[in-house]
């Protein structure tokens, strides 16, 4: 499971990445989770199976969806509540649901 996260500068999402990795370990799930800035998404998207956006870059959703759809990759925005509380478990579940 490869999950790509994207926010303004890849700064805040990296915290979430740690939380999600932890949640994945607890689930016994093997996952590659990493965060990049919005500008770098194009270089990374080919390795991803799901792309999640930080709520503050929601404005990029339409653009990213296009990029994702072209490759059959689901794209969505993380719930601001889960994002703000750095709820790795919930975001991971969200990613898994998207992938299904």
């Amino acid at each position: 499971m490869n999950i790509l996260l994207c926010c303004a500068a890849g700064m805040s999402t990296s915290l979430l990445v740690q939380k999600m990795e932890q949640a994945a370990r607890e689930k016994g799930l093997e996952a590659k989770i990493w965060a990049v800035s919005a500008d770098e998404v194009k270089q990374h998207i080919d390795q991803a199976q799901v792309l999640l956006l930080g709520p503050q870059v929601r404005y990029k959703l339409a653009e990213m969806k296009k990029v994702g759809e072209a490759r059959g990759i689901p794209v969505d925005v993380i719930s601001p509540v889960d994002y703000g509380s750095l709820n790795g478990k919930k975001v991971l579940e969200f990613a898994l649901r998207l992938k299904q």
Binding site: S12, L15, P55, Q56, R58, V81, G84, L86
Partner: peptide
């Protein structure tokens, strides 16, 4: 949405 992101971003 933006606010949550902005807070987190600046803190980090």
């Amino acid at each position: 949405d933006t606010r949550i992101g902005a807070y987190l971003h600046i803190c980090c």
